[in-house]
Simulated assay, not measured.
Amino acid sequence: MRTYTITVNERQAAELQEACELLARIKIGQIDHAIERLPGYYDNGDWDRVHDTRHEIQRLANSLMPEATKRREDGVAWDLYQVIRHRLAWDRAYADGAVQPGEPRKWPEMMGVCYDEPLAMSGLPLATIKEIEQ
Rank of each mutant, 00 (worst) to 15 (best):
residue 31 I to D: 00
residue 40 G to F: 00
residue 69 T to F: 12
residue 14 A to Q: 14
residue 117 E to I: 12
residue 88 L to G: 11
residue 80 L to P: 02
residue 113 V to R: 07
residue 121 M to L: 14
residue 42 Y to K: 15
residue 97 G to P: 06
residue 109 E to G: 03
residue 62 N to C: 02
residue 53 T to Q: 06
residue 49 R to N: 03
residue 93 A to Q: 06
residue 99 V to G: 05
residue 46 D to H: 15
residue 41 Y to N: 13
residue 17 Q to R: 12
residue 125 P to R: 09
residue 29 G to V: 09
residue 103 E to N: 04
residue 52 D to F: 04
residue 87 R to E: 08
residue 129 I to P: 05
residue 17 Q to H: 09
residue 97 G to W: 08
residue 122 S to H: 01
residue 58 Q to H: 08
residue 125 P to E: 15
residue 99 V to M: 00
residue 112 G to R: 12
residue 121 M to F: 01
residue 113 V to A: 11
residue 93 A to I: 04
residue 69 T to G: 13
residue 44 N to R: 14
residue 40 G to V: 13
residue 14 A to M: 07
residue 97 G to C: 05
residue 36 E to C: 03
residue 114 C to V: 10
residue 15 E to T: 13
residue 92 R to Y: 08
residue 85 R to K: 15
residue 89 A to E: 04
residue 110 M to R: 01
residue 58 Q to V: 03
residue 106 K to F: 02
residue 90 W to H: 03
residue 64 L to H: 01
residue 24 A to I: 10
residue 71 R to D: 14
residue 39 P to R: 09
residue 52 D to R: 15
residue 15 E to V: 05
residue 81 Y to Q: 06
residue 56 E to P: 00
residue 82 Q to S: 08
residue 93 A to W: 01
residue 84 I to F: 03
residue 96 D to E: 10
residue 96 D to P: 07
residue 48 D to K: 15
residue 67 E to W: 00
residue 41 Y to G: 06
residue 92 R to E: 04
residue 87 R to F: 04
residue 94 Y to C: 10
residue 80 L to R: 03
residue 50 V to A: 06
residue 26 I to Y: 10
residue 123 G to Y: 08
residue 62 N to V: 00
residue 105 R to Q: 03
residue 21 E to L: 15
residue 88 L to W: 10
residue 115 Y to E: 01
residue 82 Q to T: 09
residue 97 G to V: 12
residue 81 Y to M: 05
residue 112 G to A: 11
residue 114 C to T: 07
residue 49 R to L: 14
residue 71 R to H: 12
residue 17 Q to S: 12
residue 107 W to F: 08
residue 77 A to R: 03
residue 73 E to C: 07
residue 49 R to K: 09
residue 12 Q to E: 15
residue 124 L to Y: 09
residue 71 R to S: 02
residue 79 D to S: 08
residue 55 H to M: 13
residue 68 A to T: 09
residue 84 I to L: 11
residue 118 P to F: 01
residue 101 P to F: 04
residue 73 E to W: 05
residue 24 A to Q: 01
residue 106 K to P: 02
residue 120 A to H: 04
residue 30 Q to G: 03
residue 116 D to M: 13
residue 43 D to M: 06
residue 45 G to P: 07
residue 107 W to Y: 06
residue 91 D to A: 14
residue 88 L to A: 11
residue 59 R to N: 04
residue 42 Y to L: 07
residue 34 A to Y: 02
residue 32 D to H: 06
residue 65 M to A: 11
residue 50 V to W: 06
residue 50 V to Q: 12
residue 79 D to K: 04
residue 127 A to G: 05
residue 33 H to L: 15
residue 88 L to C: 10
residue 94 Y to P: 07
residue 103 E to S: 15
residue 30 Q to H: 09
residue 22 L to Y: 01
residue 58 Q to W: 06
residue 36 E to D: 03
residue 72 R to C: 09
residue 118 P to M: 05
residue 106 K to S: 05
residue 49 R to Q: 04
